[in-house]
Amino acid sequence: MTTLLDVRNVSKSFTMGGIFGRKTVNAVMDASFSLSAEKPEIFTIIGESGSGKTTLARMILGLEDPSEGEILFQGQKVSRHASKAERLAFMSKVQPVFQNPFEAFNPLKKIERYLESTARQFLHTKDRAAIDRAMDEALQKVGLSLKEVRGRFPHEMSGGQLQRCAIARALIPNPPLLITDEPVSMVDASLRMSIVNLLKSLRDDLKVSVIYITHDLATAYYISNRLIIMQRGRIVEMGDARTVLDNPQHPYSQLLKASVLSTDDAGAGKLATDPDMVKAANGLVGQAGKLVVRPDGREVRVYG
């Protein structure tokens, strides 16, 4: 088995503040996981704000260097200080999809501009027809066409359509890996499932691996193969998505699951969270512990 992405004992700390009162924030602590090149999957990183999930994604994208450990993509080290050519080569294999589709496109510019630039840079062609063909093919994959998109400005499209365009753009160089950071949180409810289903079909039909970053356990359960749950920079539980979410073992994972608003008893007004559960989960913040493999294949952080 060859690995596509190998995250090895990665940590990231930021130093905040000026000359006085410096303090170090550990955004990510000792994170390790890997994705296989042969078996495309949707790998979900679950966490709340401050869990380090976005920092981890930025490191995988090479926008931030790890303080410790290293990230290998197809055997090569991902680094912020790579040369321009290396960087372009890397970007043609790993592409991001951003959170807010309305922000991801410059509102004053036409949408196709981003697709065109991607095609020109990563397919190394100046031929108009070839660029158009690449754009159209990518848009077809997400259920749009160049005819619908050409000449349009971002405000002329819905959030769902824009997010599809963003995904289409990311697909132009045929990357084996997409990094999607909360791709549906800003998309309207009625359009959200079309994006989520699209991610699923990218994996199943186009064999693209997707790192799906979210705080939403329900969509994670719906689409992902494996997942990790992060609490304040540490991975607290990792394993098969169904195994973990059906029966979470770490107190924090249990708290997250209990906090998901259920619609099963809509109108009953049940909102209370067990305070002991919150206390148990919060008590573990800052403790190192270590990840232990359980018989069902998952890893859980245990303490003491």
Partner: peptide
């Protein structure tokens, strides 16, 4: 720090292009 800037970078646009075409209008 707007997302469209990062998007432009990942679309392979050069720094000159980002500055003159994405940022200058603002």
């Amino acid at each position: 720090h707007r997302e469209f800037t990062r998007h432009a970078v990942f679309a392979g646009m050069s720094t000159r292009k980002v500055l003159l075409e994405e940022h200058l209008p603002y």
